[in-house]
Structure formats: structure tokens, C-alpha cells
Write a protein that binds this DNA or RNA. Structure first.
Lengths: 199, 199
DNA sequence: TGTACATCAGTGAACGCGCGTTCACTGATGTAC
DNA sequence: TGTACATCAGTGAACGCGCGTTCACTGATGTAC
């Protein structure tokens, strides 16, 4: 395991990948340096060759989680049938069962909405930027000219997923999601356009 | 500071009161035994005379926070004018500026929606029960016969408050709230009844 | 091509701090006579 | 009523574990000759 810049970069990527999953699964507080390194196939001593502190890792891992989470959502959206309205396609992607049950691989905004309040300003800033982007996309997808409605739909999605993951009862979780789905659908101005043949 | 059952019970209440505020402010992880005892006017050594472990305190403090938070909301609701529709009165209580900016004194559901996923089953159970109650009240207030819509409104409220507290930008926080307010208002079937003269 | 050397990613033992927990002790309050 | 004693809520020093961080060392890879 001698010198190799490519190998080192690869190690760093692995650490980030693991960390971005771990923090989405368990929150920032759950991230342990030793555990993270172990899961990346390294020992804890090597950590400080890649990151100057646990805090720095967390910020980078959060940014990584945001983009990885967005990728995942985009994949889910692209799997929707073409007759689905744009808003419904996004909603279905977020409310996908696999997405709700596997936060480690999902939307970081949903995973950290609660934690972010206690996090430092760098994290809050990344989250804010991401939220604005999501709200714009939702607003467009719903056919709202101005971007006013997107934030509320984002809040409903984040709130519903957060609560569905928090409750101790599968049936209640399912009710939260289906109720949110209906509420969001009521905001869909493109629901009865060319997109929606089945709805 | 000798023997007195009444004094002991009083101490315990103070500890719970402090703890329920601290966890709402900073999340479960932020609660330190020594800090909590200090704020209750005691030293850390006395702690185990009241609670068998930090974990037990957290569960009790969470239950306490739920009821204290509900009290607070009820007070805010009762401060609304009589011409306000029931749903709007509740919405205004949650979206009250003071409530959003002081989680330590507010709704525990909003404060812990994110944390609860990582908490033990006792916490999840208390939260689930509380959520069901809130959803029913919202559903009634909105004039929906069946309880289906309440959960979505609860998700919107919780999501909006969580996000408003998480972002780094006051203007964005305000937009989240006003957008959520509009979305919820669109679900209000009693909006144009006798209740609403000004809306 | 082969050999000696330099580089440095990674290893693993050790450090030190924070914090939950324990425990011997204190002293004010309530009770017995 | 006054005095001696028992109780126990609270104190504060100390323990011990987990975990972030440090550091001397290893050994594989790349370079020089």
C-alpha cells in the first residue's frame, strides 16, 4: 500500500461515500471516525491524511450526500411512466417505499431537515441552497408560474417522509404518505393535461 | 437541604422542566446530565436519586415536552380572534414567530420529528400517539368528515417549521411559512363559513 | 534490466478529554422521648 | 418544650469508557543510476 495519488484519491472517495451514507442513516452525531474508516476498508489512523477533522468530513459528506441523494431521486423520477404528470413523478420518487425505508441512500434534505437546526452555518447554507432548487423544480412541475407554491410542497414532502420514518407503526406511516400524496396532488395544475391519462 | 418528600418532588419537576426544554432546543444528543442538573439548581451527583439513567430521563422529558408543547399551542390558539376559522387558528399557532424561534418552549413533535427516527421505541410510540391526536384535531378543524386529510396538514406544518428552523436565511424561512400557510388554507372547508369574516 | 533509495498512504498503539455513573460524606429536616 | 438521634436529598471527588486525535513506524510503489 505504498505511494499512489490515484489510490489516495480513491480512498478519499470511499470514505466520503461511506460517511455520506452513515450520516443519512443515523444523523451527524452517529458518525464515528473509526467506524467510518473501517467501513471504507481502512484503519482510523489514516483518517487525518484525508481530512483535517471529523467536522470537516461531516461538511464534505453532507455536500456529497445532497448530490448523491439528488441523483437517486432523479433515477426514481426517470423510472416513472411518461403519462405521469411532472409533479406526480417527483412526488412518487420521494414517496417511493424503498426511498422512505433507506435514508442512507436517499434525499439528504429529508434525512437532515431535523438535524440541520443544530448544525453549523456551512451545513445550513448547503441545505438552504438545495431547498431553493427543489422548490423551484416542484413549482415548475406543478405548473405554478411564480415559485411561491414549491416551498410548501417541499415542506409537505419533507415533513411526511420525516414523520413516516419516525413513527412506530407501518400503517400510520402509510397513511401519512397517502394523505400527503393527495394534498400535493390537489396543487397539481398539470394533472389533467396531456401528461395524465391514467390519473 | 435535608429530608423532605415535597422538596424532592419539586426538584424532580425542575429537572424534567429543564430537560424538556434542553432536548427541544438542542435534540436528545445535546442533553448532558451535569448541565441539566446545574440548570435545575443542583449538582450532577444528585441525578441518580431522581432518575436511574440519562436514557430514562430522556424518555420522561420527551413525554413532558409533548404535553408542555401542546399546552403552549393551546394558549396560542386561544389567543386567536373568534372570527378566525378553526384550521387557521391552529395553523397560526404553529406558525407563530415566537413559536418558530423558540423550539425549547414549543411543540415537541416539531422539535423531534427528525431525531425520533434514531430514538428508541418508547419515544417513537409517544410521538406516534401524539401525531394521531394532532391529525384528528386538524382534520376536524378543516371540516373534513373522515380523518384522512389531517396527517398531510400535520406533515406540512412539521415540515415547514423544521425547514424554517434549518435554513440560514430569514427571508427564505418566511417564504416557507407563508407558502405552507397558503397550501393549508386551500384545504380549509370552513374557511368561508361563519368563522371567517376577515379572510 | 536490475538494484538502492526516497516517498508517503496506511497501521496500530497511545493519549487525553468529555461525560455518564458511582460513592463516601454532609447537614438540614423530621421524629422520639 | 427541649434535646438526641435517624433519615436521606444533595454534594463533590473520582472512576472508567468511548472516541477524536496524534505519532512513530511499516512497507509497497515510484524514481534514479
Amino acid at each position: 500500500m505504498g505511494y499512489s495519488q490515484a489510490q489516495k484519491a480513491n480512498s478519499r472517495d470511499r470514505i466520503l461515500e461511506v460517511a455520506s451514507r452513515l450520516i443519512r442513516e443515523g444523523g451527524f452525531a452517529s458518525l464515528g471516525v473509526a467506524d467510518c474508516m473501517r467501513q471504507a476498508g481502512l484503519t482510523h489512523g489514516a483518517f487525518y491524511g484525508h481530512f483535517s477533522s471529523r467536522e470537516h468530513l461531516i461538511v464534505e459528506a453532507f455536500a456529497h450526500a445532497l448530490s448523491r441523494g439528488e441523483q437517486r431521486i432523479k433515477i426514481l423520477v426517470s423510472e416513472q411512466g411518461e403519462e405521469t404528470s411532472p409533479l406526480r413523478a417527483i412526488t412518487d420518487a420521494y414517496f417511493n417505499d424503498d426511498h422512505i425505508k433507506n435514508p442512507g441512500n436517499g434525499c439528504a434534505l429529508c434525512a437532515f431537515a431535523g438535524d440541520a437546526r443544530h448544525a453549523d452555518v456551512g451545513i445550513k447554507h448547503l441545505l438552504s441552497t438545495h431547498l431553493r432548487g427543489l422548490a423551484d423544480r416542484l413549482s415548475d412541475a406543478a405548473g405554478h408560474g411564480d415559485g411561491s407554491g414549491g416551498l410548501a410542497v417541499a415542506a409537505t414532502i419533507v415533513g411526511a417522509i420525516t414523520l413516516a420514518r419516525a413513527v412506530d407503526d407501518e400503517a400510520l406511516a402509510a397513511s401519512i404518505i397517502s394523505s400527503a400524496r393527495q394534498l400535493i396532488s390537489s396543487q397539481d395544475r398539470l394533472k389533467h393535461s396531456v401528461f395524465s391519462k391514467t390519473m
